[in-house]
Amino acid sequence: MKKIFFLLFICISFTSIAQNWQLDFEQAKQQAQQEKKNILLVFSGSDWCAPCIKLDHEIWQSDVFEAHARENLVMVKADFPKRKNNQLPEEQSKKNAALAERYNPNGYFPFVILLNAKGEIINQLGYKNLAPKAYINAIYEN
């Protein structure tokens, strides 16, 4: 049983690394400025929001999106899990709540915001039943 949990942890860790999600918005802004990239801020309920989970599996984890993000975006995830065993550290929960207060005051999930390196909103959208390439295009449409 321990081996199964260890393998699951390794798989989740590699998925997180492949997606290169940032958890600190201020660091993401600095990185975006240095690399001359936009920021994609994603509000997610990773353990309760069905469209969030679908977006993660169908878009964020796709090879097409990962290649695009690697070249063009700094990815930031503000997650709001509800299950007790998935709770984030208190400091991260506070950071995510501050981001929600500023960028998602209505509490939409999933909520995807394209920002410039200064943190100014360029576009925003939610879940759309699109292929990865079409979703990428939707991110940039205004």
Rank of each mutant, 00 (worst) to 15 (best):
L7V: 13
V42Q: 05
M1C: 08
E120K: 12
I12F: 11
A28L: 01
Q124P: 04
A69S: 13
L23H: 12
D63C: 01
P110M: 07
P51D: 06
I113C: 00
I4L: 15
Y140D: 07
W60C: 08
A18F: 07
N142Q: 15
Q34E: 14
K82T: 09
A18V: 08
L114P: 10
E71N: 13
L125I: 12
F9P: 08
I121L: 06
A50I: 09
W48M: 10
E120S: 09
Q34L: 09
E66M: 14
L55Y: 13
Y103F: 15
R70E: 12
A97D: 10
N116I: 06
K77Q: 13
Q31N: 06
S16G: 14
M75Q: 14
I136L: 11
M1S: 12
C11Q: 15
A131P: 07
I53C: 04
S46N: 04
Q92N: 07
A134I: 05
Q61D: 15
K95Y: 06
N20S: 15
A97V: 02
K77I: 15
E120H: 10
N72W: 03
Y103H: 03
R70N: 10
A67R: 13
I136E: 04
G119Q: 03
Q33P: 00
Q92R: 09
N106M: 12
Q22Y: 15
F80W: 07
L8D: 02
D56C: 06
Q87W: 04
N72R: 13
W21Q: 03
K84T: 06
N137P: 04
I12C: 10
A69T: 03
Q124F: 09
F25K: 03
Q92S: 05
V112L: 07
M75W: 14
N86C: 07
Y135A: 06
Q31E: 08
K118P: 01
F14S: 04
A100F: 05
V112P: 00
K118C: 05
A50H: 09
I53T: 05
E90I: 11
C52P: 04
G119T: 01
E58L: 11
L55A: 13
W48F: 07
N129A: 13
Y135G: 02
D24G: 04
I39F: 04
M1V: 14
E35L: 13
R83A: 12
W21K: 02
S46L: 14
L8C: 08
I139V: 14
P132R: 04
E90R: 10
D24R: 09
Q22M: 09
